[in-house]
């Protein structure tokens, strides 16, 4: 049963078209990886899903049309986006950043509990709640970005290259946590990655995007197994 459905998605910046009719469907509670080379349009696809860029076509979440809604409305419908570059509010404290993640939930007991929950997933954050986010290391900032997104109690989590700029060990740990969250909370995850090996390790379905088109879709195992696919579409061995 498809939860997140994308049909004929067309997105451009000004005159330049970046996505030329993308079709995609993600089942509820599944991790879906979007792979592809630099400039393929992966970030743009996530931006379209969360309403950050205008898109033509169909985006539906559990039967609700998302196309044309502004980002704040999409967030209210339960889509949390960890954008490229993480979008951390550097001058604000770790706690303020996390609370902003729950902005649309208006606070209350549950938000306090979730703050605690996020801190137990990412212990370094608990020790740094009062510090400004700008003082965190790269790994901690990625934890913060992920933790902040989880504060929404999202139905769908959009992750844009969580591995970017992080040491391999840190990245592996992050992916382990994403997988744990997916299993415990049944959160649907769409993860964009250049590091195909990592993404295919946690995803069930994967799609390869190239110059604005999906050129290959399938289960993660199949795509991982197909070395020729890896060579031709991903440009490297996985």
């Amino acid at each position: 049963m498809s939860f997140l459905v994308v049909e004929g998605l067309v997105v451009g910046y000004g005159e330049a078209r970046v996505l030329h009719g993308v079709d995609l469907s993600v089942a509820e509670g599944e991790i879906c990886a979007i792979l592809g080379p630099n400039g393929a349009g992966k970030t743009t696809l996530l931006r379209a899903l969360s309403g950050m860029v205008r898109a033509r076509g169909v985006i539906r979440l559990g039967g609700t049309a998302l196309t044309g809604r502004p980002p704040d409305a999409v967030a209210r419908l339960g889509v949390a986006h960890v954008p490229e570059g993480r979008g951390t509010f550097m001058p604000l404290t770790v706690e303020e950043n996390l609370r902003l993640g729950a902005f649309v939930r208006r606070g209350g007991r549950e938000v306090e509990d979730d703050l605690d929950r996020v801190c137990s997933w990412f212990p370094p954050l608990r020790d740094r709640l009062g510090q400004v986010a700008g003082s965190l290391s790269g790994g901690e900032q990625q934890m913060l970005a992920l933790g902040r997104a989880l504060m929404l109690r999202p139905k769908v989590l959009l992750l844009d290259e969580p591995s970017l700029g992080l040491a391999p060990l840190v990245t592996r740990e992050l992916f382990r946590i994403v997988q744990a969250i997916n299993q415990e909370e049944r959160t649907t995850v769409v993860v964009v990655e250049q590091n195909a090996h990592l993404a295919l390790g946690v995803a069930r379905q994967a799609h390869v995007l190239e110059t604005g088109r999906i050129v290959l879709s399938g289960t993660a195992e199949r795509i991982r197994a197909d070395e020729q696919v890896a060579q031709s579409y991903l440009g490297y061995r996985v």
């Binding site: 980002p71 704040d72 604000l92």
Partner: peptide, 24 residues
Amino acid sequence: SRVGRALHALRDDEGAAEVMGVRL
């Protein structure tokens, strides 16, 4: 308050604030 956080967020990064659900 929550309102203050929203103002700080939109000051620091409008795009990210919007994604948090802040109505700019």
